[in-house]
Each structure stands twice: as structure tokens, then as C-alpha cells.
Design a protein around this nucleic acid. Structure first.
Lengths: 344, 344
DNA sequence: CGGAGTCAATGAACCGGTTCATCATAACGC
DNA sequence: GCGTTATGATGAACCGGTTCATTGACTCCG
């Protein structure tokens, strides 16, 4: 039969129907495991499909059904190592359920987010999971409210009725900051990302809460926001440590920015440890295996991906669930050698 | 279950045509920038589309055209930080050209690879870029040869006529091994991945070639293959360093396995440097910022992603190009403090 | 024996665009 | 004035499945 498969002409339901001597509707019913089909006919149709090497055309199915069995995932930047865990888990759950994952990068721009939502709609995508550059952006919110398919936000908060999975960044930052304050640090610098989005906003809140709880006023000049790339982290660290009135501790709260920070410290000849404590906002091999190992905040991104997929699947099934569900994954502080009492 | 909630009424070409007072064919011609349409009508149709908030249905377009403007990317595991660079670049190029990226993970299993190829075909995917767990696998090769769309192999070699982008891992391994041999090492251990696939196979070749060029016979007991996870790297390192006749240098050639290796060394109380040189098969923040910094092999994964997308686009356009083109990205050795002459 | 009821199979209509043979109109040449 | 072209618009057929009203066969029961 391998010679038959050479045919460029594709086999269609009609052909299977003719081969099996049944109607096209019957072939369709076999394909969809419809209960009202006798065993005998089912076997005949299945044999015909096997003989002809038939394969359904998902496009045609989507056409009629109005759903594509596609789920889109749009995140700021794939190039965040730990995010791969999220995608990996989400994809596994979705594929198990018969869905295929579409991937796109928003590059953290509202206009791209909007145009991607439009593109997903054009493709009749059944569900979307995405990050937002700015939860308050008017046009983005408009586009989200007009989306005909369920949208789940990844690590974002939104007053709208969208489902979301988040990590408890506020708690993470509170733990990290409290840990440093408890060691005796009074001048704690913080590197944080885009505060228009939930994670950095929450971290900032946690940072302030921990200070408030300790009755200490944070020095706002030590807080650098909008740290979005390794180069940003490098520059922010250099500027913080290069001036007068330098901090005794550095909380690199933005995700995956530890490298840029450590690179700057090394260039400046500053060692982590005795004179400067460092805490990372997310864990990594780098944090764990650095000398000294870097105290880090950790949370389960794989679980976030899994739950995001599950929640979206429920929503796509059209289950009657309350709107705007939120799942929050806890954060944890792993204390390592990079955080010590301040010198003298 | 109201009909409206089941299928929210959307604006179709018919509606636009009625609104603009033209035929559906004319709307279609406007949509596709067909030259034979007067400016006046074009404007009327465009106004009608804007007024009604019309959006084409890509599924319906695919249905008729027989192509989906989807490109699938299937790799072993997303959870390889540097691979994100490949995907990021490829996605950017493809989106620019009007394609959307489908993502799937093969988990390095031939049966999954085959079933994914089938799924892609069912979706009428226009092109595929993927890795293979085993280039010689009969059924996979069969499935590849039957694929109706162009397939491009990522970092794989194949005697078939498929396009491919590869990195010159042989050269990288030769450089790394030569470097260690040049420093005076005679007992070099190597951690390598699945030798059924191109990268590890090439690295092994490079390792042997460098030995041959130096007139030295490698000790095959020091070569550990099938190192595919961080845990594998941990175990392999522990076993290599725990026995008698330990190596003086460790070439961690498998991608992204440095963490597991370093973790094992630390657990065993072994320092990198004086008594043991280490070279990593791929660069990372960890390698760069470790103490001492780890000598590493580097190559441009972003360029691989970019070229993979471009080559696939050319192939999908149906250009008359010779089959089985291959693009190889060079590898480079970044010498750092972790590789030194062996002690005494 | 006839009427009601059950159940599987049928096939035409449909999903929403694109294509192309056909047609209407205007321009042009002689 | 009439035939010929050129140009642009038309709309029915088509892509490949799914759906559902209808049909046909068969069973059950009074």
C-alpha cells in the first residue's frame, strides 16, 4: 500500500464512503465516535480509511464546527528561561486534551498585544493565555473585552472578569525584604521590572510592606524600576553601586536579571557577600551554583502552566463557572550564602 | 442553550458586500489586493468593512486555498534555555511573513515525532521545523518522506533531501578537546547526550579527532553518553569523579548540563580549577559568572532560528532550489578560568 | 394485521471565504 | 453606426468536512 500513499491526490470522506459503500455522513459519524453506528459498518468504514490512508482535514472540521482546537499563548518574550517551564506544562496538558498550541511573542508592546488578539480571532482560536504589558491600557482592555474566546492572564491582575494564574510576588518580595531587614540591612536597593504590570507592582508592594512592618522608611532613590533586560540590570547595578551612599543589600527582583547584575558587580570588582548582600527574585542554576550561592525566591512555574491550561480548558468547555477566577501559586524564599548581616 | 451564545453572529463577506452594494467576489478581491478593482469601489468596500467591523476568517481562507499559513516547530524539550533564542528569532521572521507558529514538544520520542507529523498534516500546516530523536529511525524517516509539506531539520543531519540548519558541534568539540589536550590533560572525561542524534554524534567525533590529531588515545571509559537531564549529568559526574582513575578534565558537552555537573562536584567537595578543569558545551550566564568562569563553546542560536525560518519560507514559496540545503553555524571556544594545566 | 415506535443510515445544506467563466459597459477603430 | 476589445464586476461552484430532517427497515403490541 505504500505505492498508493505516493498519490498527491488526498483521500476525502467521499472516497472513504465510496470504498466502504456507505454515505459520507456515516463516515463522519464513525470519525466522531457517534453512538448510532453499527459495529459492522464502523469496521467497514475503518477498514476503508486504513486502506486508503485517509486523514481528516482539521481545517474543514474547524470550518463547520466554528472552533479550531487551537490555543494561543502570547508572552512578553520566550527568552526567559523559567517561562519555558510554564509553556512546557501548558502544552502537555492542552495536547492531551486535543488542542494545539500557537505561540507568539508580544515583545511587551500594547499594539502587538492588540494585533495578536485580532490575529487569534481571525484564526478562530478557541482560547488564549497571555501576559499584558499594562493591565490598565485602554485599548488593550477594549480588545480583551471584545475577544470572542476565553482569555486567561498569565501572572497578571485585571479588574475585568478574566481568569488568571499568578504567583504571590508580594509575599516573595516581603519575605526577601524582611529577611534582609532582619539581618540588619537598612539600605536595601531594589531592581524591578515594569511596574505597570502585576509582578513588579506586587514586588514593590511587598518591598514597602516589609519596610513598613519593620518601621523603616525605604530610600526611594535605591529603587530602580523598568529593568527589563540583562543590560538594564547591568546599568542599574553599576549606577547604584557607583554613586555615593551605596546600598548594603541588592534585591534583584526582576525575573532573570541576576546575570546582568552579577556581571556589573564583577566588572566593578565588587564581591557578593561581606560588603554586599544579594537576593534574586527568581531561582536558577546561576543563583544556586554561584559563589556564594544566591538567596532566591522560588515558585512553581510548571504548576502555573498546568493550572492555566486546565482553567482554560474548563472555560472553553463552556462550563458554568464563576467568572474571573484566580489561582495564586505561593512563593518561597531559599536562603543561601549571599545574604548576610551588613559589614561593621 | 441559545443560538446566539453558541455562535455569536459575526460579519461575513456577504454582509460587507450588501453594505457596500457590491458582489461578494468584489469584497474578496479587495481583501486580496487584486489589481482589477477600481479605487472607488475599493474605498466603498473598505469603508463598509470598517463600519461593520469585518474580519476575515482565516479558517475559511485556508479551506479554499489548501494552505494554512501555519508553521510548526517541534523540538525535544522547550525547557532548554538557549533554544528559546532559536524559537524567538524564527517566530519573528515567520510572523513578519504572515505565518503563525505552532509549537509542540517531541519529548525526544520517535512515536511522538511521528504522531506530531500526522497532526501537522491534518492541520494542513505549510511547513515544519523539528528535531529528531534518531535520524536513522525507519518509521520516522518513512513519515518524513511522506510529509506533504516541506520539513526542515533543526541541528540534525539526514541523508534524505531535507533542508537543515546545524551548528558545527564537531569543530566545537575539537576546539575544546584540543584546548584541554594542549594544556597537558591526558585523562579527559566527556559527558554527551544521545549519540543517535547529530549534535552529540558530532561532538564525539570532534573529541576523537582532537585526540587523534594529538596522537593520544582517549579512554572510552571516561565517555558517558545519553546524558539528557540535569540529573543524568549529576549522576555521570558523580560516578566519574567517585571512582578510581579519575579524569583531570571534564568536558560537559551536552547542552545545558553544566548545572547538574557543577552540583555534583560541589556535593563531592570538589572545586573547579586546580585539580579539575571543566569545559562546557554551551555558554550561559552560569558558565560566565561561575567562580572560576567556565570555558565554554558558543554558537549563534538566534542566527540558526532566523535562517531556519528563511529557508523554510523559501521552500514554502515553492522556489526552485536544490533540495537538501544545509546551513552550518560556526562554533567558537571562549576560554575562561576553568581550564588550566593539570596539577603536578 | 395494522399502527406506533425505535433505530440506523442517508444525503443535501451548510460553514465563509476564493475563483473563474460569464456578463455589462465603455472605449475605440473604421 | 456597428463590430471588436478592454476592463471591471458578478455570482455560482467549490474547498472537505458535519449536521439534521428525512427515509427505510424492523420491532412491538393490542
Amino acid at each position: 500500500m505504500s505505492l498508493q500513499s505516493r498519490r498527491p491526490q488526498t483521500v476525502k470522506v467521499r472516497d472513504v464512503a465510496r470504498e466502504a459503500g456507505v454515505a459520507v455522513g456515516t463516515v463522519s459519524r464513525v470519525l466522531n465516535d457517534h453512538p448510532t453506528v453499527t459495529r459492522e459498518l464502523r469496521e467497514r468504514v475503518e477498514r476503508a480509511m486504513a486502506d486508503l490512508g485517509y486523514e481528516v482535514d482539521v481545517t474543514a472540521q474547524s470550518m463547520r464546527a466554528g472552533r479550531s482546537r487551537l490555543v494561543a499563548c502570547a508572552i512578553r518574550d520566550f527568552d526567559i528561561p523559567r517561562f519555558a517551564l510554564f509553556i512546557k506544562e501548558a502544552e502537555a496538558v492542552l495536547r492531551e486534551a486535543g488542542y494545539t498550541l500557537l505561540l507568539a511573542s508580544t515583545t511587551n508592546r500594547p499594539d502587538v498585544e492588540i494585533s495578536l488578539l485580532r490575529a487569534f480571532r481571525r484564526r478562530r482560536v478557541d482560547g488564549v493565555m497571555m501576559t499584558l504589558s499594562d493591565e490598565e491600557h485602554r485599548d488593550v482592555r477594549q480588545a480583551l473585552s471584545e475577544a470572542p474566546m476565553p482569555v486567561l492572564l498569565i501572572d497578571r491582575d485585571c479588574v475585568g472578569a478574566l481568569d488568571r494564574v499568578t504567583a504571590d510576588h508580594r509575599q516573595g518580595a516581603r519575605l526577601a525584604t524582611g529577611h534582609l531587614l532582619g539581618l540588619g540591612h537598612r539600605r536595601i536597593a531594589m531592581l524591578v521590572g515594569d511596574t505597570k504590570a502585576f509582578p513588579s507592582r506586587s514586588r514593590l508592594e511587598g518591598f514597602r510592606e516589609a519596610h513598613a512592618a519593620a518601621g523603616i522608611a525605604p530610600d526611594s532613590r535605591l529603587v530602580r524600576d523598568n529593568v527589563l533586560s540583562s543590560e538594564d540590570a547591568y546599568r542599574a547595578t553599576a549606577s547604584l553601586m557607583g554613586g555615593t551612599n551605596t546600598p548594603t543589600a541588592l534585591f534583584v527582583a526582576a525575573m532573570d536579571m541576576l546575570g546582568g547584575c552579577l556581571r556589573a558587580l564583577r566588572t566593578m570588582g565588587l564581591a557578593v557577600g561581606d560588603r554586599l548582600s544579594v537576593v534574586a527574585g527568581s531561582d536558577s542554576d546561576l543563583a544556586e551554583l554561584h559563589t556564594p550561592p544566591i538567596t532566591s525566591i522560588e515558585w512553581d512555574l510548571a504548576a502555573m502552566g498546568r493550572h492555566a491550561a486546565i482553567m482554560l480548558l474548563e472555560r472553553m468547555r463552556g462550563d458554568e463557572i464563576e467568572r474571573g477566577r484566580g489561582l495564586t501559586v505561593p512563593t518561597e524564599l531559599i536562603i543561601r550564602g549571599s545574604s548576610r548581616p551588613p559589614a561593621n
